[in-house]
Design a protein around this nucleic acid. Structure first.
Length: 298
DNA sequence: CTCACATCCTGGATGC
DNA sequence: TGCATCCAGGATGTGA
């Protein structure tokens, strides 16, 4: 599913029509996605105004004017699209026009009215691995989905010393540790593979070996931290990666997939100058890992 | 603690 | 063209 860069791209796409806008109508077309919607979901949103649209890990968070937060996770195949009349001057009538030709997987429809005019925001999710909830902002940190969530891999939040504390003594392979949302929150299969390649670290290496005896981060961990930060920020700048499901709210594609070094490149040449080896695919924990056996020996 | 594996779903790619 | 099979960006729960 969308990993952090894709979710951040969606957040930025929705912000212009959501921030400061009011839910004029909410249509919930089924009782559940991955989980059941909370009781009275649509009615509790209607009439509320979005104070701000944020993100934590792979979760979109819409803070409302009554102190509640709308939480959305896109699962593997969730996407939002925005429909307007094109000139931003939508009348309510436009919303009653025929649905798009393949609306089978449009599960939630938000009719918004705000500073930017009216917009219809539609949640589509073929596999229905996504989920939503509505909780008090004050209780968010203790919510089951957020309690124990690790550090954000963006900006200054990701610090080698802090990461060392989380990895110390871990015998799990590095790949598994980086996918563990309790350690770093927001990374998925793509960016974990890319970051390990950039840092020239083996996905099989026990994660705890990145930490020195005294508990200080080894040089490799500093390198990995920088690689994660770089790949995430570059991916956000590219609008995320569009493989199968990720699409921006305006219907355009992200283009970071063209910048992949190893992900989905099994059998192709390792792009590191002078390497000459071939990208290999192995399976760890049931998920594909792509890496260069020569660059990522240790 | 760690792992392998199944599970929730649909759709696209591939192979016969 | 059909049909079967495998695979997919996530997260959770089970049992070993």
């Amino acid at each position: 599913m969308p990993e952090l860069p894709e979710v951040e791209t969606v957040r930025r796409g929705l912000e212009p029509v959501m921030q400061g806008a009011r839910f004029m109508g909410v249509e919930q077309r089924r009782a559940d996605l991955r989980f059941a919607f909370p009781e009275g979901f649509a009615g509790r949103l209607e009439g509320r105004r979005v104070v701000s649209l944020g993100r934590r890990a792979k979760y979109l968070l819409a803070d409302l004017d009554d102190g509640m937060v709308l939480i959305c996770h896109l699962g593997m195949s969730g996407s939002f699209r925005i429909e307007t009349a094109g000139d931003g001057s939508l009348t309510p009538g436009i919303f009653h026009q025929a649905r798009s030709k393949d609306d089978r997987h449009d599960h939630v429809v938000f009719d918004m009215e705000g500073p930017a005019g009216r917009a219809r925001v539609i949640y589509n999710d073929p596999r229905r691995f996504g989920y939503m909830d509505l909780v008090a902002r004050a209780a968010l940190a203790e919510h089951a989905w957020f309690r124990g969530l690790g550090v954000e891999p963006t900006g200054n939040s990701l610090d080698p010393a802090d990461l060392a504390k989380r990895l110390i003594g871990k015998t799990a392979p590095l790949k598994a540790a980086l996918l563990d949302q309790r350690i770093i929150a927001g990374l998925g299969n793509i960016y974990v593979c890319e970051a390990m390649w950039r840092a020239e670290l083996s996905p099989l290496k026990p994660a705890g070996r990145l930490v020195g005896k005294t508990g200080r981060p080894r040089e490799a961990l500093v390198r990995l931290t920088e690689a994660i930060r770089a790949v995430i920020s570059e991916a956000i700048a590219a609008g995320g990666s569009s493989l199968r499901d990720h699409i921006r709210t305006d219907g355009t594609l992200g283009y970071f997939q063209h910048g992949f070094s190893v992900y989905d490149r099994e059998g192709k040449a390792c792009p590191r100058p002078g390497c000459g080896d071939t990208v290999r695919r192995i399976v760890q924990g049931g998920r594909s890992t792509f890496y260069c056996p020569r660059c990522q020996k240790n």
